[in-house]
Design a protein around this nucleic acid. Structure first.
Lengths: 230, 230
DNA sequence: TAGGAAGCTATACGCTCGTATCGTAGGCTC
DNA sequence: GAGCCTACGATACGAGCGTATAGCTTCCTA
């Protein structure tokens, strides 16, 4: 992925950016995949966005799926690096980080292969964060972390409707500040009173026992309960 | 949408279910749209799932978009009814409710028109729920509710990766119980200490002031901060 | 300085999609 | 029972997709 500039019809002048054409294609793929999904983003569109012929996409990445895999790999590699920089050096307002997030969120909705491993990685990091900053004697720390990450990413995926409902773009400075404040609100005070929580816990324990009993005798199934409002 | 049964190639015998063919198409659309998205679900597949010719889809709904609109309308209408029944009569384990949820979540990811209005409706209901059960002197109750709903739906959309990470299907009795417990955990105890919350709040206030100042003089933008682990 | 390798475009093939059109069968109205 | 409306299937069409291939240009190497 180092700098290289060779042959081709257009004479070797700088073309819009100083990136390799290969890198330009990858970046365009990253952006269009996260905006429109794997199906929605066509090779031709990606090529156009990179100011390149569709054939070149195939030349460099073999196939659309190949480009997809390359994007996955890139996010997996650079993503963690960028995220660490953001977390530990406070460089939070990187548009690159946002792009990675959006790409990941899309991938996870669509169930891409690399998305799953990235999700696992995020869950593990979150679990560590939770153990350090929000300890709890929960019997299922991994479940707690996984659900939190899924919900976090959800807010990103729902960006469009969320923006509409709030009246301001979630990605704009004002909108993201508003979301950040709301998130702070949600994270700093419990939604359920100790009373309600205890009642819900009891109900779930009962359900769990019923489930265990059913497992032994192939009884009727039962689904979850107890979420506020949604 | 009443019962009707007229002409057609197959003699008037009962076909697989007792639903109108029109209703069968709508149901298949509901299912396939929520499983594969608007692009992923083809008219031919939907027709096959409904044991019907592709032409009949067009006949009844005009176009694929028409079918989509009909599904939206159905969810908008029946959805609230079902949800109310679920909430107020405790009938939580309806597979129909789950289908509606999944359809909605997909719609919102894809930004369908009706999804937006449904989202608004959900936000309003959640806001009421929050005011009653988790009062707070937040300056932005609507923002809090909207974010909560977006995150709730996110967990649904991320079902695939979430299931993979947890090791058990989120929709199975065991899996959904586990998710419900994790959710209870998250909702019943704050993730941020009063200390950390105060610090974050101060940082956001500072950011907000900087933003207001910039608004007057067209200064440089700045993006949000302060989310745990994600 | 000849020749192969790499970057790149242009063009075309085959497939699948949404949609349009036509033909047919049954029920309703007068 | 003639005429018409509605339900429905079969077939076809054009567009857009991913992909294959051929050919040109430039650089590297021997």
């Amino acid at each position: 992925m180092a700098r290289d500039r060779r042959g081709g019809s257009p004479p070797p002048t700088a073309v819009s950016t100083d990136l390799t054409r290969r890198a330009r294609i990858r970046d365009a793929g990253l952006r269009l995949f996260s905006e429109r999904g794997t199906e929605g983003a066509t090779v031709r569109d990606i090529a156009r966005a990179a100011s390149v012929s569709p054939g070149l996409v195939r030349h460099h990445f073999g196939s659309k799926e190949g480009l997809r895999a390359a994007c996955d790999a890139f996010v997996l590699e650079r993503g963690t690096e960028i995220k660490e920089r953001a977390l530990f050096q406070g460089e939070l307002d990187q548009p690159e980080l946002l792009l990675m997030h959006r790409y990941l969120a899309r991938s996870m909705v669509e169930g891409s292969g690399a998305a799953a491993s990235m999700f696992d990685r995020l869950v593990q990091a979150t679990q560590l964060w939770l153990e350090r900053h929000a300890p709890s004697e929960t019997p299922d720390p991994r479940g707690r972390a996984a659900l939190l990450i899924a919900m976090e990413l959800g807010a990103l995926v729902m960006r469009e409707v969320l923006s509409r409902a709030l009246g301001s773009d979630t990605l704009s400075p004002e909108g993201s500040l508003r979301v950040a404040r709301a998130k702070l609100e949600l994270y700093s005070q419990p939604l359920l009173s100790a009373d309600a929580a205890a009642r819900a816990r009891a109900a779930m324990d009962a359900l769990g026992e019923r489930l265990d009993a059913a497992a032994a005798g192939e009884g009727r199934p039962a689904t979850g309960a107890g979420d506020p409002g949604g």
